[in-house]
Amino acid sequence: MAVKIILILLLFSVHLGNAQKVLDVECQSVVGVVEENTTIPCTFKLPPEYNDVIINEATIKRWTPPLFYINYNDNVVKGDPRIILPSRTDPSLLFTNTTVSDEGEYEYELQTSRGVIKSTTFSLRVTAEFSPPVINSWPEGIKADVAPVLYCNTSGGYPAGSIHWFNNNGVPVTEKATLEITERDDKLLTMSSKLTLNVNDLIWEAFLCFVLNSSFRDEGLTSFYEAEETGFSVVGKISFTLQPTDYLELECQSAVGVIGENTTIPCSFSSFQGDEDIIIYSLWIMSNFWIGTYQRGSQ
Results as ranks from 00 to 15, higher is better:
Glu105Phe: 13
Pro172Glu: 08
Asn75Gln: 12
Asp201His: 10
Phe122Tyr: 13
Ile279Arg: 09
Ala227Lys: 10
Ser287Asn: 15
Gly17Gln: 10
Glu276Tyr: 02
Asn75Leu: 06
Thr241Gln: 09
Ala128Thr: 01
Phe269Ile: 05
Leu283Pro: 05
Asp80Asn: 11
Gly17Phe: 07
Leu195Asn: 02
Ser13Ile: 11
Glu129Gln: 15
Tyr225Lys: 10
Glu49Phe: 15
Arg184Cys: 04
Ile279Pro: 03
Asp90Gly: 11
Ile181Phe: 10
Phe272Pro: 00
Asn136Gln: 14
Thr182Phe: 05
Arg88Phe: 12
Arg62Met: 11
Cys152Glu: 08
Thr89Lys: 15
Ala19Gly: 01
Asn75Ser: 13
Ile54Cys: 05
Cys152Arg: 02
Pro47Asn: 08
Tyr225Leu: 09
Thr190Cys: 06
Leu250Ser: 07
Lys187His: 13
Ile8Arg: 08
Lys176Ile: 04
Arg62Val: 08
Leu283Phe: 07
Asn71Met: 06
Val199Glu: 14
Ser270Met: 05
Ser155Asn: 12
Pro266Ile: 01
Glu175Met: 14
Asp102His: 09
Leu248Phe: 05
Ile278Gly: 01
Phe240Tyr: 14
Asp277Pro: 01
Asn213Gln: 05
Asn136Cys: 12
Ala227Pro: 00
Val258Ser: 10
Ile280Ser: 04
Ala160Ile: 02
Phe210Asn: 02
Pro66Leu: 01
Leu195Pro: 03
Gln253Ile: 00
Cys252Lys: 11
Thr241Asn: 11
Phe210Thr: 05
Ser233His: 13
Arg125Phe: 07
Gly274Asp: 00
Thr127Asn: 13
Ser282Arg: 14
Leu150Phe: 06
Pro86Gln: 12
Pro266Arg: 11
Ser155Pro: 00
Leu10Gln: 02
Ser119Val: 04
Pro91Gln: 05
Ile117Glu: 00
Arg125Asp: 14
Pro47Tyr: 07
Val258Gly: 10
Leu11Val: 07
Thr127Leu: 06
Ile117Tyr: 05
